[in-house]
Design a protein around this nucleic acid. Structure first.
Lengths: 265, 265
DNA sequence: GAATTTCTACTGGTATGACCAGTTGAGACG
DNA sequence: CGTCTCAACTGGTCATACCAGTAGAAATTC
């Protein structure tokens, strides 16, 4: 089609300029399935129709159906396993945060700013959690925390287990809130940092310091002293952050030098 | 195959009992692609090989490649568009939280407990944000907040715009922190609640109250009074929550009655 | 008759080949 | 030299076939 040299964009009155979006078939299928699930027509645990069945209902090919189903599966709305029909998933908070984990890693790797922000946000969050824990921890809560710390102490010689126990202790603090979202968030943030730089959490020889700091946290919580708990937490996390920073600076400097070298070559 | 009557499970020494997991081809492909991206071999913006190309390299069929790529796309690691080769995505925080949005909705719909926890977590978080804002808001920050509030005031007659402006005001408060993760989380939590129950945020006639409360928040921030800001925020959110609860109780009661009726029939 | 085994029909996973529908960029055209 | 055209890519969709697991009916065994 050719409208001559001066064609350009022609303005026609009353002509809606909203572009016609060409949707993928799979997207349409996905939306319909989501709607079916959300409307309550299908409840968690229920089985979806088979791919071949859906393919006839919607009058589209199997690839379109498959793509839609895979998409729902990776969003955690349904569960697919070989040989049996897909089921509506019972939502799982852990799985949810695991899924963004990958994306988060990608993000952290390409954005140092976000990494720092994530650390800061975590400090803010953990402080909130520990204050709350100090304010309302019951005898039962404190018993659990003591058990968690005791377990961590017993893992001193086993580095991976020690780190795991470390994370569990922090999770236990968040658990005092009784708020699943808070627990999840706290776990997720720690997890992301851990996944991103496992090496930085394995500082040899710092186990004793860590344990001492955890003990101080526990004491503060047990004595219901919010201010003391907050300070202990800030210092605990800041010390760790300090070590991060030292190592990161070293890495950054090295890669900057390498970058310069590459530019010259 | 038939091993006789007493067959059952036979224990053989030194035989590892770890089951052989049958991985889907697409998963293997996905992992390799992720590794390629994470190793820095491909940077954001770079183009991936075409599906047909990858298909030859990995010696698998096109469906396997496609499924892997779609999976990466829905995780936000790459961007696919018709006609051109896929590109490694520049990570987008908004997109990330949008993606869990669906899952979160599914979760909230099937777990009333989580809904309450999410609300509580939001209050905790917003309180933290507003305290921080009160503590460190600059003249520029306050100017922006005032503008946001002014805009909201101008939207009073347009309900959807008003709600949007309402959310923008809260986001602006979080923005004072300068911490992208905090902003994101605050936006996301509000968004989830909004998506879950738009109807509950459209309480007719409450616009004036909302504006007054926002004004109080702004004043507290402007005068750098943390305590006052906290109290204003708690009351602001609690008032809204109170209305939520009334409507929710009504809905819950109704559905409970319906449930009983169904059980009887 | 009840528990077990066996088998068949169905489900998802993968491969192939074909064609449609956008994008791009090199080369023809002015 | 800029513009336009078009061929050679790319992803999107379909049809078909076959492989590989499951579940449930049917046959078998006790």
């Amino acid at each position: 089609m050719h409208f001559g040299h001066a064609a350009g964009i022609i303005s026609i009155p009353h002509l809606s300029t909203q572009p016609i979006v060409r949707r993928k078939l799979a997207d349409e299928v996905r939306d319909r399935l989501i709607h079916t699930i959300r409307s309550g027509e299908l409840r968690p645990g229920d089985r979806l129709p088979s791919e071949r069945d859906l393919m006839e209902r919607f009058e589209v090919g199997r690839p379109a159906i498959r793509e839609a189903m895979q998409s729902l599966a990776s969003a955690g709305l349904i569960e697919i396993s070989h040989g049996e029909r897909a089921r509506v998933a019972v939502p799982d908070t852990h799985g949810m945060f695991d899924r963004i984990g990958q994306t988060m890693l990608h993000l952290l790797q390409t954005s140092p700013v976000t990494l720092q922000h994530l650390k800061d946000a975590r400090v803010m969050f953990e402080v909130g959690m520990v204050r709350m824990a100090a304010a309302r921890a019951s005898g039962e809560d404190i018993r659990k925390l003591r058990a968690a710390l005791q377990h961590q102490r017993s893992c001193m010689s086993n580095v991976p287990e020690f780190v795991k126990a470390d994370m569990a202790f922090h999770t236990a603090i968040a658990g005092v809130s009784g708020n699943s979202v808070c627990v999840l968030l706290s776990e997720a943030m720690l997890d992301w940092l851990f996944e991103f730089r496992r090496d930085l959490l394995r500082i040899p020889g710092s186990e004793l310091i860590t344990l001492a700091e955890h003990e101080r946290l526990l004491d503060a919580i047990a004595s219901h002293s919010e201010a003391e708990a907050e300070q202990a937490m800030v210092e605990h996390l800041t010390r760790a952050s300090e070590r991060y920073r030292i190592l990161e600076d070293a890495i950054a400097t090295r890669s900057m030098l390498r970058g310069t070298a590459e530019a010259k070559s």
